[in-house]
Design a protein around this nucleic acid. Structure first.
Lengths: 210, 210
DNA sequence: CCTTGTGAATCGTTTCACAGCC
DNA sequence: GGCTGTGAAACGATTCACAAGG
């Protein structure tokens, strides 16, 4: 299963579906239809069924999907049956906010270390994680068995750090620096660029129904 | 110009191009080719030319684009020739980090107000912006002439606030709550969901070259 | 010769529509 | 009757390839 390449948009929607399923589970709902999942996520029932069909067939015709079973299947597909170790590079405002963000741990992402180069920031404790010296980074990535690196550093520091952590074997990076970064196709990179999101909204404000 | 609907991906790339152009401008470079812009942004020269072609023809054959002229054109297309007033709802960790994030002001987005419902947070000053009582929100949105609202509140508070601010006339929202929110098609909404980005990376770690 | 601008071709995703099953 | 699963159709975005201009 999952032999072909799956579209990024599909994977993101699966995450959304999982969130809804967990809510429905908490409410004790037994089954759910593709139409119901669709309206929660702002998509269509056909889209939901197609998304799931890439990975198998999980529903019962005439009935829908069993909430708990589908929920478990999605967690397995998304690789959420284990916890993942996350290191944050950059102990500035964004790095600190990320380190203290509870939503990560809730979903199985454990922040195991935060790094900075500024001595004033090293040693500070953030929700139980102490900021470490960035010189220890390369060794730590291996000894701590870090899976995912979050980059919360200035623009000019981003690409060199991508190169550095990928050399150390990291294969997944979430970049918050306001600059596109590149790595080998073996490495998964996502960028979150908040200023760019605002620029998109500015564009929409100027051009929507114009 | 810009009559047809332009793909979101195109608009986002235009923001990237603009960033590169500003760098090149700072370095004093006079002209730039589509290929050069492409390699900076990790795309192709044909993509760059196609993106620009939706809005006009900005280059000279055999020569490329004049850095300053294209830069100005893109700023105009993206609606960045004016500043935009931004209000942040939620004075928790994320709201505070956003309020103090310098990257917004640098790109013409002025944080004019931060709101919270917790009396312990109200009155606190964040980089010159004082956290206000959320009860004042509706009136303030009009009197302060807010253009864009940033939502940095818990999941369950997000949709009600979307409804509330859109009723007050807001037409652009950047949502940081970890839940999809919906509004009329007159309103532009973007969501930044960091846990979802991590889940995508987890999926990639499990499935890439599998 | 170099590089743009763009129709045409390709590729990928979403939507449609219906057969199959509960 | 209701709802899934899925080929086929429609749609949309990217890439190709080349004519035209500097």
């Amino acid at each position: 299963m999952a032999l072909k390449h799956i579209a990024e948009s599909t994977v993101r929607r699966l995450s959304d579906y999982l969130r809804f399923l967990e809510e429905l589970e908490a409410q004790g709902q037994q089954t759910v239809s593709s139409g119901e999942l669709a309206s929660l996520g702002g998509t269509t029932s056909a889209q939901v069924r197609k998304d799931l069909s890439f990975f198998g067939s999980f529903g019962k015709r005439g009935l829908g999907y069993t909430v708990t079973a589908l929920s478990r299947s999605l967690r397995q597909i998304l690789g959420l049956e284990r916890t993942w170790k996350v290191a944050i590079i950059g102990g500035g405002k964004i790095g600190r906010a990320l380190a203290q963000y509870h939503g990560f741990r809730e979903r199985g992402f454990d922040v195991v270390a935060v790094y900075d180069i500024d001595p004033a920031r090293i040693g500070v404790s953030l929700d139980g994680v102490v900021v470490r010296d960035q010189r220890d980074l390369d060794a730590d990535l291996t000894t701590l068995a870090v899976d995912i690196v979050l980059l919360a550093v200035p623009a000019e520091a981003a690409q060199p750090l991508v190169d550095r952590v990928t050399s150390a074997g990291i294969r997944a990076i979430l970049n918050f620096a306001p600059v596109p970064v590149q790595a080998s196709s073996r490495v998964a990179i996502r960028s979150v660029n908040m200023a760019l999101e605002l620029e998109f909204l500015a564009y929409e404000l100027v051009n929507r129904d114009a």
